[in-house]
């Protein structure tokens, strides 16, 4: 870990300006790796700093802004989550558990109780990949850590790597769970930047690796996520998060699915929402699979056909081919289970 300057931000505006000032003084900021970073829960950032993977010259501690940006508001129109709310606060919120089950479950099934008590939900969606070749700087080839150096995972040990959304430059899996719920529920992100506040669809927040895997989001220097807004919809109650892993708890997903269904009285699907985790380089929406379910009765057969569509463009490497079958089974299981929920 490199020495760094530590500052506490008194207001959100000061925070974003401070980052911009930090960028301005750096003559050649490396793309996707800013000289200043926001510090909230620190559960991912400090870890990566200790490993020397991230080397910010400055940390701007925004935990002082928690009061202003951690409210959980449930209204008939939307669920609004302040970005500095702790994962555990959202996961344990009775109304979210009841009315937005996929949101609560995606958080409850993530990390450990200790981490959920520390981590902010804003930081959680920006959590960086668990790819070993990224997290260990003694591997020379990692385009995400060191652009242009290559990708050791392509022909390395890639059991945990992505089968969807990968490029020839990066196959690192997006590790989070909560993002899948936000993705499936058409969440909108409120971003405060040096030029003011704007909103961004959650589906536009993360960037597929392409030829610049070091650039992971569309956020600009000085941008800070202040809230997530999930618009109310008819499929919220009939939603769940299915996470499959080798052990029962405290492991990143081998495959996961956030699903939400609106089923009419005749048992036909009016609307379906499906997002995939553990299998893709970014939070992954399976729109073809959703469309295929509309107007159909949800049974194991239709669920399985949809699940197959969800993995249409999947490209396995040496050790992760099982994720295609597993991912399909996960989606199928999640859909069938969601269809049987009493709502």
């Amino acid at each position: 870990m490199r020495p760094f300057v530590y500052e506490r931000a008194a207001t959100s505006e000061v925070a974003t300006q401070a980052i911009r000032a930090g960028i301005a003084t750096d003559t050649a900021p490396r793309q996707g790796r800013y000289p200043a970073e926001f510090l909230a829960g620190g559960t991912n950032l400090l870890d990566l700093m200790k490993l020397d993977v991230m080397q910010p010259a400055k940390l701007i501690d925004i935990t002082g802004l928690t009061q202003a940006h951690s409210a959980i508001l449930v209204s008939p129109q939307a669920l609004r989550l302040g970005a500095l709310a702790k994962m555990s606060a959202v996961a344990d919120h009775p109304e979210i558990i009841k009315n937005f089950p996929v949101v609560a479950q995606s958080l409850t099934l993530a990390a450990s109780a200790q981490l959920r008590n520390m981590a902010s939900i804003g930081g959680n969606v920006l959590q960086r990949t668990r790819c070993s070749y990224f997290r260990d700087t003694s591997w020379s080839a990692c385009n995400k850590r060191n652009p242009g150096s290559g990708c050791a995972a392509l022909d390395g040990y890639n059991r945990g790597h992505a089968v969807l959304g990968a490029s020839k430059d990066c196959i690192a899996t997006y590790p989070g769970d909560f993002a899948q719920a936000l993705m499936a529920l058409d969440a909108v992100v409120t971003v405060l930047g040096p030029d003011g506040t704007r909103t961004v669809p959650f589906s536009d927040l993360h960037r597929a690796p392409g030829s610049t895997p070091n650039v992971e989001t569309t956020l600009r220097p000085g941008d800070v996520i202040t809230a997530f807004v999930i618009p109310a919809a008819t499929w919220m109650r009939r939603s769940l998060y299915m996470k499959i892993r080798d052990r029962q708890s405290y492991q990143f997903a081998l495959a996961s699915a956030a699903v939400a269904l609106d089923i009419d009285d005749g048992g036909l699907v009016r609307q379906a929402r499906i997002a995939l985790g553990g299998v893709a380089t970014v939070p992954w929406r399976a729109r073809d699979a959703e469309a295929a379910l509309v107007g159909k009765k949800l049974d194991p057969q239709t669920a399985e056909s949809a699940a197959r569509l969800a993995f249409g463009g999947a490209a396995p490497r040496e050790h992760n081919a099982f994720k295609i079958a597993l991912g399909q089974k996960t989606v199928t299981r999640a859909l069938v289970q969601a269809a049987t929920l009493e709502v």
Binding site: S132, D136, G156, Y157, Q248, S249, F252
Partner: peptide
């Protein structure tokens, strides 16, 4: 990683042991 003869899951998040659950 058999190409490099190196270990890749060298922490307790990735080297799995049974947890309480």
């Amino acid at each position: 990683d058999t190409n490099a003869a190196r270990y890749v899951n060298t922490d307790l998040a990735e080297y799995l042991i049974p947890v309480n659950a």
